[in-house]
């Protein structure tokens, strides 16, 4: 099926809320999903996998350790959730607290997405480095400096992040015309997203129906 970008952002935000992700990070995750789709990544399944892992208790909140350099670690038992590590890393870099390293996350693409979202405003470009690759996000666009985009589709053993120098360059990732064509999403994936969305909804009651717009009137007037 084909979705609008707004549907992707709205429903993934609601799915995140349904999974107990705090509001601000749910907003970031919705924006990340939409950003991934505009960049031609298969954003919806990536976010869905992240949320399902979080719901299953397979990931935890990251925490900052300082020695020897700033490091975003998990809670000791679980890898850190990318929905938390990505925006948190972008925050730390933009606050001048980088460079920093990460404990591996299940969905490294979400780190890139958070950098994409948070590099849209004025400020430095944000770099993501892994074993044999480097990506740059600047002004909301993604650039590959080294390696392959596909590297980010599986957990990586080593990731570092830093602010980019103005001289940093790379090959810009081509945008998908999602505004003209919509976002293609597998029906089964979308059904699973809807299942998470429903966790954020309150069933209607007779009371709620009795007070809504149009209630209590004969509409044939």
């Amino acid at each position: 099926m084909r979705l609008s970008l707004n549907e992707v952002e709205t429903y993934l935000r609601r799915a995140a809320l349904g999974c107990g992700v705090p509001q601000g990070y749910a907003e970031d995750l919705g924006a990340s999903a939409a950003w991934l789709c505009t960049q031609g990544f298969d954003g919806v399944p990536v976010v869905l996998a992240e949320l399902e892992a979080w719901s299953a208790g397979e990931t935890g909140l990251g925490r900052l350790t300082a020695a020897p350099t700033p490091h975003l670690a998990g809670d000791g038992a679980k890898p850190p959730a990318a929905w938390h590590s990505g925006p948190s890393a972008a925050d730390l870099l933009r606050a001048g607290l980088g460079p920093l390293s990460f404990e591996p996350v299940v969905q490294p693409l979400l780190l890139l997405a958070a950098f994409g979202v948070y590099s849209a405003a004025k400020g430095p470009g944000l770099l993501l480095r892994w074993d044999d690759g480097t990506a740059l996000c600047r002004n909301g666009a993604a650039y590959l400096v080294a390696g392959a985009w596909a590297d980010l589709e599986a957990p990586l053993p080593f990731i570092q992040a830093a602010c980019a120098s103005p001289r940093e360059q790379g090959r810009r990732r081509a945008l998908l015309p999602v505004l003209d064509e919509g976002v293609s999403v597998d029906q089964g994936v979308w059904t699973r997203v809807q299942t998470l969305v429903h966790l954020s909804l309150v069933p209607a009651s007779e009371t709620s129906r009795a007070t809504g717009a149009g209630a209590g009137l004969v509409d044939a007037d």
């Binding site: 705090p22 925050d91 730390l92």
Partner: peptide
């Protein structure tokens, strides 16, 4: 910095 504060208080991100 709020970047550090929010790591401990993620529930306030949208309010900040």
């Amino acid at each position: 910095p709020l970047a550090v504060f929010l790591l401990r208080h993620p529930q306030f991100r949208h309010l900040v």
